[in-house]
Design a protein around this nucleic acid. Structure first.
Length: 327
DNA sequence: CAAGCGTGGTA
DNA sequence: TTACCAAGCTT
């Protein structure tokens, strides 16, 4: 390769790569799933837990999870109820069920080892484009284009000069990420990790710390005077939604050692007292969560719908009029 | 492609 | 306090 043949674009690209990777070596967090002795299973578990969930909340659950189920086959042999309870309050508990199903697939179809093939990873339940690439890159050191929310935001600002990426992943974004990815395998791994960390620590969504950014002089968004986002992203609804009711029901089921009579789950604050008198009094922990559920301003129809959804998703099971976590 | 899916910290 | 946001996936 003749250096004089290097294009200006290629030179800039390599300058960005060096600056961001050097920054990563100085400033990155020491996270257990990045330790040299990490296993692919540990990486996979971390990636599932980190979907839409902050690092600080994942750390303690991740440690206990892998202490209890150190290999995929260990998790595969567990019951869904134990899995959902161990998931605790990480949120999106369907992720726990999918991780459980993925572990069973790994045990039954991959000899108990996390597959290192991108397509095989993608075929596992709960693993999409991002997670398949992340495991292939961070666990197996392969060269793939990783596109997560951090990388999208960094590249939107750095190259496109926009404050925030579009609502959904576009083909142009994927193409840009592919173009920026170093050709060398080891460098591509470092780049993926470094850009993601830059987005998490410096190039954050709300209050970016551009004064600490290693490529602020190269940033198109900074050069443009940091213009605000065109369309303010729509926040996720919560109050009054089925999700809120589902969450409250799941809290009851996680706390309950015994199946909970369906009428108790579906009761509201008005009818709860007389209904409770007809049933054996549950433990205080359960009552605490039941009380929160009863006090939700949710009509009976919505409570029914929320429970039906949980049953359909396999997050709850019903037997003889009583509801519990799936055995 | 947009909607739906949990939870808790932070501005 | 309300609203946004956090290493997405599935339908």
């Amino acid at each position: 390769m003749n250096p004089s043949a290097e294009t200006p674009v290629g030179e800039r690209r390599r300058g960005l790569q060096r600056a961001v990777v050097d920054w990563y070596r100085r400033e990155s967090r020491e996270l257990p799933w990045r330790a040299p002795e990490r296993t692919p299973w540990q990486v996979l578990v971390s990636e599932i837990m980190l979907q839409q969930t902050p690092v600080a909340r994942v750390l303690p659950v991740w440690r206990r999870w892998l202490e209890r189920w150190p290999e995929p086959s260990d998790l595969a042999d567990a019951s869904p109820a134990d899995v959902v309870r161990a998931w605790g309050r990480l949120g999106y508990p369907r992720r726990a069920l999918r991780l459980h199903a993925a572990a069973q697939s790994i045990r039954d179809e991959h000899g108990g080892r996390v597959p290192d093939d991108h397509a095989a990873l993608l075929a596992l339940p709960g693993i999409g484009a991002y997670t398949a690439a992340a495991v292939a890159v961070f666990a197996f050191g392969q060269r793939h284009t990783v596109v997560d929310t951090n990388i999208r935001r960094v590249e939107a600002r750095l190259v496109s000069g926009r404050a925030l990426p579009s609502r959904s992943l576009t083909a142009a974004e994927t193409r840009l990420a592919e173009e920026l990815l170093p050709d060398d395998v080891a460098e591509s791994v470092a780049w993926n990790q470094a850009v993601m960390e830059l987005g998490a620590l410096v190039c954050t969504a709300r209050s970016p710390r551009c004064d600490e950014c290693p490529v602020q002089d190269e940033c198109a968004w900074v050069a443009a005077g940091r213009p605000p986002a065109e369309k303010t992203p729509r926040g996720q609804a919560w109050k009054g939604t089925d999700r809120q009711v589902r969450g409250a029901i799941m809290a009851v089921l996680r706390a309950a050692e015994e199946p909970v009579p369906r009428p108790l789950l579906l009761a509201d604050v008005v009818s709860a007292e007389q209904l409770a008198a007809q049933h054996p009094s549950p433990p205080d922990v359960v009552v605490e969560h039941l009380t929160k559920l009863w006090h939700l301003p949710a009509p009976a129809e919505q409570r029914e719908r929320a429970l039906a959804g949980l049953l359909a998703d396999g997050l709850a099971a019903q037997d003889d009029g009583a509801v519990s976590l799936p055995a």
